[in-house]
Design a binder for these strands. Structure first.
Lengths: 168, 168
DNA sequence: TTGAATTTTCAAAATTTATTGAAAATATAT
DNA sequence: ATATATTTTCAATAAATTTTGAAAATTCAA
């Protein structure tokens, strides 16, 4: 297989993969393109390589920057802005985990704690099942939260860092 | 807060949560409803409680069954079919992990292995970055694959099971 | 300043995805 | 067998999401 074909396949399937994770196809494709680009590239490069509009590139690169996965790069002497992606997959993964935890898990756990404090007769089986389910999810989510924190902080901690090196 | 209001909130946010995970809102809402229903319920119950059409219920319960999260239940003397969801959150989580691994991770790893065997000069920086990126993701994915296998098999293995009891 | 290059915004259009509902298929009781 | 209840299918419709592109805003050099 040639590089050109391989690139196209990688970008395409990374985009499809993204849709299974609540990420829009284009954002994932731009990310994929940046991951395999050795040097920073411009909006126009992205537009051309993915055949998408300027507005689309602009919005999605902004989202990628908000997710902490992509950086704007200023190249001396160049008028245009350049973009580059973090290439260390471990860092990419922890960054995604960090953001999703903040955006999804934490608010969900907060809500579940509230829902657990429902008023009603615990003898009532509807009430009981509701409380049990909510408590079960909250407990599970709480453990997941802790495990993810360990992962996120692993790179900052020497001991955990060396434990997790195994996985790198 | 009353049970009725709490239920509505739980179903609604579980549905919203689902959309961040590539699951459609309705499927997640039906799952939520079943999770808090102490006894099996019918298509009509689901239609009424979520205000959605019969066809919609039918398709989404089927998907939930395919995911191994919901079961059809036959109640003696009843003409209609009843549905019930696995309530043990640990089992729910491992079942989801198992399915997503099979549907998404495994095929992705297979593709990445192919893409790594690209023809081209490794000295070329485009080729090098492509191979490095793909290899990095494949390696990371491979480790994730192993970790997930451990989790999935934990319940079947005594030693791992007791280790993971901590998290239950 | 001015003006050219570049980026950003956002309403409208296109596309994708989800939902409906009625007809067809299936299952069950009499 | 026949009638009735129930489930399934799927084309049409509706809703949600994504994309475009041109105007507005911004940046920057001279």
């Amino acid at each position: 297989m040639k590089l050109t074909e391989a690139k196209a396949q990688f970008i395409s399937s990374w985009g499809a993969f993204g849709t299974h994770w609540g990420i829009n196809r284009t954002m994932a494709q731009i990310h994929a393109l940046l991951l395999i680009s050795p040097d920073p590239i411009t909006q126009d490069d992205i537009m051309e390589q993915l055949s998408i509009s300027r507005g689309n590139v602009n919005m999605n690169t902004r989202d990628l920057i908000d997710w902490g996965l992509v950086d704007r790069v200023l190249i001396p002497g160049e008028r245009k802005e350049f973009f580059t992606a973090e290439k260390d997959i471990w860092k990419v993964a922890t960054q995604i985990i960090k953001e999703r935890k903040k955006r999804e898990l934490d608010p969900m756990l907060k809500l579940l704690s509230q829902l657990e404090q429902i008023e009603g007769d615990k003898k009532d089986k509807d009430v009981k099942q509701f409380v049990d389910t909510v408590a079960g999810i909250r407990k599970f989510g709480g453990q997941a939260d802790k495990v993810l924190d360990v992962m996120i902080k692993a790179d900052e901690s020497w001991i955990l860092g060396s434990m997790l090196k195994f996985f790198k």
